[in-house]
Write a protein that binds this DNA or RNA. Structure first.
Lengths: 342, 342
DNA sequence: TTGTAAGCGTTATCAC
DNA sequence: GTGATAACGCTTACAA
């Protein structure tokens, strides 16, 4: 296992170079010699070092991937999709969880560069990720932005058409009779949050419903954030008839808060969100959502990256955008005649 | 970015060695020299190559991780937990999805070795994984088995106490009045499948209920497998009053089949399984399950591995076992008076 | 405190 | 067809 080309060469009675040729399937080695070498490789349990060959070729066959958290039901499939596509090209994934922490993300980016990954697929924390990514872009380092894009950072990106999808989801709510729609969202420096809000505004304005800035609640994009924001929503003097959560985790937190307040969905208040929660519908076809094709998006991202790495694509940044699918279930039910407080 | 130690050295007017010392925080460099070098590093945007230093030190700071599928709600958290623990020690994760395919897993193992990862955390496909793992073990390569262990392979392992947890879950069903319990499971060469069946048998025998081998259904551990097995179960002349699914995906498939047959859970038939489905309970507190502390188990696995890598642990294989938590919800309801067919 | 030389395991290049 | 040599970017050992 700790054997080197030279060990194999000695054992087979040839030079290291010939061993290298056999290992890499280069032509011009006699069948006889090849057989001897293969025998020696097997006997010594020789495993060629990609680290040594990578040093020469600058090709590590490694791709860096940074997501906020693999255990999130959206990012799990994303990582899987990227890995599948990378595998097809003989690449492996170096996986990092940024925990939505800009500093940690920055450190990971630096570390991945030191590991000489050949490219990076990243779902950036926010627009501020540009601070550490721009340096790489300037140096021509291949990057693909996934899920979130960053204005002014000229790199390939793959994402949902969030504005259109949010418009679709909001129009559905409006059709159901909802007019006062609370929007629970992320910081405004995240493209998904911006685009989804834009979609909501578009739908409202299309229906001649005034947009109320007071109904936009900014919070952390986790369950706790959704929970807290919903508590604020319920404290409003004129309660909205629907909550539009910018993602699945926020919707779950909202659900907790609603249940705790003794409210039922959708009878007392409707709840919709982005991101389907995989498998949930099998047990309980409840949440009306915008479903994103997470695996496909990630495969597309990996594909774009591999094209940059291989040089088969060059030039201007490319944008790939997927449509979101509206899945209507029960949580978006009809708006009920308005009541004050409770 | 493509700068090397020598470039930095030239720019700072020192030798490459001194640059190396600064980069690695070695003592014995004057503050003045250090400052000059740091300036040069910044100017050149120098990123030391871990691939080059790894070649010398044989320390790549990489850990290989192989799971069947990150997008599975059990393995997502597992990968996250392992990454968090690895990160603490400055290690990165090379993530591979075996897709429960023995051949693919074998190829990944070989590839990870070639990449010179310093250790491997693996949730092996089955006992047959020993075929490719034994070679590494013999060579003293650090491996930790996660979730599933393999008899006769002397390596560290982390897992649930599956037999005890299955016993717990089965006793719960028995208390609810169930006597005919169908067990839908994996191939018998997977330790989790064996141990969970053993737990079920123990509970039955403890309750003086005869074990019926005809009620064990072996299938693939995915949704389709659960679906098909459940169809077979429903075709039985004497229908069981409960289904015990060996994991979450099988339970989902079972749920589909039951719903399609117009049966309701738990009124017509009870359904329980291993693995909670994260977030599901927030929306629908329905499935009675054995919950595994996935993140913690993975952190423990990474910890054991890092101890082997650093040499702070040596000697005999260690086994860490976690208790499963029985979470009783509604799907395990009382057994109803038996009916024939439907 | 700083520098020189050698080598980690490969492979590209050029001989033979 | 096969081999000698140098080099990839870094660090260990030794020297100054």
């Amino acid at each position: 296992m700790a054997a080197t080309v030279r060990d194999v060469a000695r054992r087979a009675g040839v030079s290291a170079m010939t061993v290298s040729r056999v290992v890499n399937n280069h032509p011009g080695v006699s069948a006889e010699t090849r057989a001897k070498i293969e025998a020696a490789i097997a006997e010594l349990d020789y495993a060629p070092s990609k680290i040594a060959s990578g040093l020469i070729s600058s090709r590590t066959q490694l791709i860096g991937m940074i997501v906020p958290d693999v255990s999130n039901p959206f990012f799990g499939p994303v990582v899987h999709g990227a890995e599948v596509e990378a595998r097809r090209a003989g690449y492996r994934l170096l996986l990092c969880n940024s925990e939505s922490d800009l500093r940690l993300e920055r450190d990971y980016v630096e570390d991945l560069v030191q590991h000489r990954v050949e490219g990076l697929i990243i779902a950036p924390v926010s627009d501020r990720s540009a601070e550490h990514l721009r340096r790489l872009v300037t140096n021509g380092f291949p990057i693909v932005l996934l899920d979130r894009y960053i204005d002014g950072l000229p790199v390939d990106s793959v994402r949902l058409d969030n504005a259109a999808a949010a418009d679709l989801l909001a129009r559905h709510l409006i059709e159901k009779g909802h007019r006062r729609i609370a929007f629970v969202t992320d910081a405004s420096n995240v493209s998904t949050a911006r685009d989804r809000l834009a979609g909501l505004r578009k739908a409202l304005s299309g229906a001649k419903v005034a947009f109320d800035d007071e109904l936009v609640f900014r919070t952390t994009t986790d369950q706790l954030g959704g929970y807290r924001a919903t508590q604020q929503i319920l404290a409003l003097s004129e309660r909205p008839t629907a909550i539009f959560a910018v993602n699945n985790m926020i919707a779950l937190g909202a659900m907790q808060a609603l249940r705790q307040a003794g409210l039922s969905v959708p009878d007392d208040i409707a709840l919709v969100c982005f991101d389907d929660i995989p498998h949930l519908a099998v047990i309980s076809p409840f949440l009306t959502v915008i479903d994103q094709p997470a695996e496909q998006m990630a495969e597309a991202a990996a594909h774009l990256l591999l094209e940059r790495i291989s040089g088969s694509a060059s030039g201007a940044a490319r944008e790939v955008s997927f449509p979101g699918a509206l899945i209507v279930r029960t949580s978006s039910g009809e708006a009920v005649p308005r009541r004050r407080r409770r």
